[in-house]
Amino acid sequence: RKEMTAACTPRRRIINLTSVLSLQEEINEQGHEVLREMLHNHSFVGCVNPQWALAQHQTKLYLLNTTKLSEELFYQILIYDFANFGVLRLSEPAPLFDLAMLALDSPESGWTEEDGPKEGLAEYIVEFLKKKAEMLADYFSLEIDEEGNLIGLPLLIDNYVPPLEGLPIFILRLATEVNWDEEKECFESLSKECAMFYSIRKQYISEESTLSGQQSEVPGSIPNSWKWTVEHIVYKALRSHILPPKHFTEDGNILQLANLPDLYKVFERC
Rank of each mutant, 00 (worst) to 15 (best):
79 I>N: 01
34 V>T: 13
135 M>L: 06
25 E>Q: 10
38 M>V: 12
176 T>R: 14
127 E>Q: 08
34 V>S: 07
30 Q>K: 10
232 H>L: 02
171 I>A: 05
106 S>E: 13
176 T>E: 10
36 R>N: 07
185 E>N: 14
67 T>I: 03
38 M>S: 02
66 T>E: 01
254 I>K: 02
218 V>L: 13
22 S>A: 07
9 T>K: 08
181 D>H: 13
245 P>S: 05
270 C>D: 15
77 I>D: 01
190 L>C: 07
175 A>C: 11
190 L>N: 02
211 L>R: 15
198 Y>T: 00
54 L>N: 00
105 D>K: 12
82 F>S: 03
83 A>Y: 03
146 E>Y: 13
262 D>N: 08
173 R>I: 01
56 Q>A: 15
119 E>F: 07
154 P>G: 01
11 R>E: 10
58 Q>K: 12
265 K>G: 15
135 M>G: 03
116 G>T: 06
58 Q>Y: 07
123 E>Y: 06
135 M>I: 05
252 G>V: 03
224 N>V: 15
115 D>W: 08
254 I>V: 14
200 I>P: 04
39 L>R: 01
34 V>G: 10
71 E>V: 04
121 L>F: 09
47 C>M: 05
41 N>C: 10
9 T>G: 06
121 L>N: 09
14 I>S: 13
11 R>V: 12
226 W>K: 02
76 Q>H: 01
123 E>A: 13
225 S>M: 07
94 A>W: 14
54 L>M: 13
247 H>F: 06
22 S>K: 13
88 L>S: 11
6 A>R: 04
26 E>Y: 06
201 R>V: 02
153 L>G: 00
166 G>F: 00
189 S>F: 04
156 L>Y: 01
183 E>Q: 05
196 M>Q: 15
158 D>P: 12
28 N>E: 13
218 V>F: 15
19 S>R: 03
49 N>Q: 05
193 E>I: 07
120 G>Y: 14
242 I>M: 12
23 L>G: 02
57 H>I: 09
141 S>C: 07
266 V>R: 15
204 Y>I: 03
114 E>F: 08
139 Y>D: 03
189 S>L: 10
33 E>T: 12
259 N>E: 13
225 S>T: 12
176 T>A: 10
110 G>N: 14
45 V>C: 10
217 E>K: 11
117 P>R: 08
166 G>S: 05
218 V>R: 12
174 L>Y: 02
69 L>P: 00
20 V>I: 15
211 L>I: 11
18 T>N: 09
166 G>Y: 03
250 E>D: 14
178 V>Y: 00
123 E>L: 09
108 E>T: 09
265 K>T: 11
267 F>T: 15
106 S>F: 11
197 F>I: 00
85 F>D: 00
23 L>Y: 01
87 V>A: 07
221 S>F: 11
82 F>I: 06
184 K>A: 08
149 N>I: 12
164 L>C: 06
213 G>V: 14
181 D>N: 11
88 L>C: 08
222 I>R: 14
242 I>Q: 02
238 L>P: 00
230 V>G: 01
227 K>T: 06
80 Y>N: 09
221 S>Y: 13
148 G>L: 09
1 R>E: 08
161 V>I: 07
212 S>V: 14
170 F>C: 02
85 F>C: 06
201 R>W: 00
108 E>V: 09
38 M>D: 01
230 V>N: 01
42 H>D: 00
126 V>N: 13
196 M>H: 10
215 Q>K: 11
75 Y>D: 00
46 G>Q: 15
8 C>I: 06
11 R>L: 12
41 N>T: 11
89 R>A: 15
65 N>P: 01
122 A>G: 08
124 Y>G: 15
203 Q>A: 11
98 D>I: 05
256 Q>V: 09
10 P>Q: 07
75 Y>K: 09
97 F>E: 08
213 G>R: 15
82 F>V: 05
247 H>S: 13
30 Q>T: 13
16 N>E: 11
225 S>Y: 11
253 N>Q: 15
218 V>H: 14
198 Y>A: 02
87 V>P: 15
245 P>Q: 04
4 M>L: 08
55 A>H: 01
18 T>P: 07
192 K>R: 14
27 I>K: 03
57 H>Q: 03
25 E>H: 11
10 P>R: 04
254 I>E: 01
80 Y>H: 13
109 S>M: 09
153 L>I: 13
52 W>C: 03
181 D>T: 08
88 L>D: 05
192 K>I: 05
130 K>G: 08
48 V>N: 00
139 Y>P: 00
177 E>A: 07
90 L>C: 05
172 L>R: 06
172 L>F: 14
15 I>Q: 05
54 L>H: 01
19 S>W: 03
270 C>W: 09
16 N>I: 08
256 Q>D: 08
75 Y>C: 03
256 Q>A: 13
248 F>P: 01
48 V>Y: 05
267 F>D: 15
234 V>L: 09
198 Y>L: 03
128 F>Q: 07
212 S>W: 13
120 G>E: 10
141 S>N: 09
181 D>Q: 14
56 Q>E: 12
50 P>Y: 07
253 N>L: 13
164 L>N: 04
80 Y>F: 13
61 L>A: 05
119 E>G: 10
49 N>R: 02
238 L>I: 10
149 N>F: 09
242 I>E: 01
200 I>V: 12
165 E>Y: 04
90 L>Q: 02
54 L>P: 01
15 I>Y: 05
213 G>L: 11
57 H>N: 08
196 M>R: 15
170 F>G: 01
210 T>N: 09
173 R>E: 01
175 A>I: 15
9 T>S: 07
88 L>M: 15
171 I>K: 01
210 T>V: 08
125 I>C: 11
103 A>K: 00
234 V>H: 00
67 T>P: 02
233 I>D: 04
226 W>E: 00
55 A>E: 01
82 F>C: 06
171 I>C: 09
16 N>A: 07
185 E>Q: 12
242 I>N: 02
6 A>K: 04
157 I>T: 02
85 F>R: 03
255 L>Y: 05
104 L>G: 01
61 L>F: 06
67 T>G: 07
56 Q>G: 09
85 F>W: 00
45 V>M: 06
63 L>H: 00
3 E>Y: 14
17 L>H: 05
3 E>R: 04
112 T>M: 12
267 F>N: 15
244 P>N: 01
100 A>E: 01
153 L>Y: 03
153 L>K: 01
41 N>Q: 14
144 I>W: 03
112 T>W: 10
72 E>I: 06
55 A>D: 01
243 L>S: 10
106 S>W: 11
48 V>K: 02
98 D>F: 05
50 P>Q: 10
136 L>S: 03
154 P>V: 01
6 A>I: 05
16 N>S: 07
38 M>R: 03
109 S>N: 14
37 E>I: 06
53 A>R: 00
6 A>Y: 04
186 C>F: 05
174 L>P: 02
187 F>D: 00
215 Q>E: 15
86 G>K: 13
85 F>Y: 05
83 A>C: 04
171 I>M: 11
183 E>H: 03
192 K>A: 06
83 A>T: 04
160 Y>L: 02
253 N>F: 14
114 E>A: 06
18 T>S: 10
113 E>F: 09
114 E>D: 14
158 D>A: 15
98 D>N: 13
226 W>Q: 02
142 L>N: 00
108 E>G: 10
45 V>K: 07
187 F>S: 00
38 M>Y: 03
210 T>C: 09
33 E>N: 10
252 G>M: 06
247 H>M: 09
251 D>C: 10
216 S>F: 11
100 A>H: 02
29 E>R: 08
46 G>R: 15
222 I>A: 14
264 Y>T: 15
211 L>D: 11
162 P>T: 00
19 S>D: 03
95 P>K: 11
144 I>F: 08
47 C>R: 03
9 T>I: 13
235 Y>G: 01
160 Y>G: 00
16 N>G: 08
259 N>V: 06
102 L>P: 00
116 G>N: 06
204 Y>V: 04
125 I>E: 00
19 S>E: 04
189 S>R: 08
38 M>H: 03
136 L>M: 09
191 S>R: 01
190 L>G: 02
261 P>I: 06
229 T>Q: 07
235 Y>T: 00
213 G>W: 12
156 L>N: 00
169 I>R: 14
6 A>S: 05
241 H>A: 08
43 S>P: 03
65 N>R: 00
75 Y>W: 04
49 N>I: 03
136 L>K: 00
147 E>G: 12
42 H>A: 12
148 G>P: 02
40 H>P: 01
252 G>T: 07
159 N>V: 04
253 N>K: 10
248 F>L: 13
153 L>F: 04
48 V>T: 04
19 S>L: 03
50 P>L: 06
138 D>W: 04
112 T>E: 13
246 K>D: 11
138 D>R: 05
179 N>S: 12
124 Y>L: 10
127 E>A: 13
37 E>Q: 09
269 R>G: 10
190 L>P: 00
265 K>R: 15
149 N>S: 09
259 N>W: 04
76 Q>K: 01
177 E>S: 06
201 R>H: 02
203 Q>G: 13
136 L>E: 01
25 E>V: 10
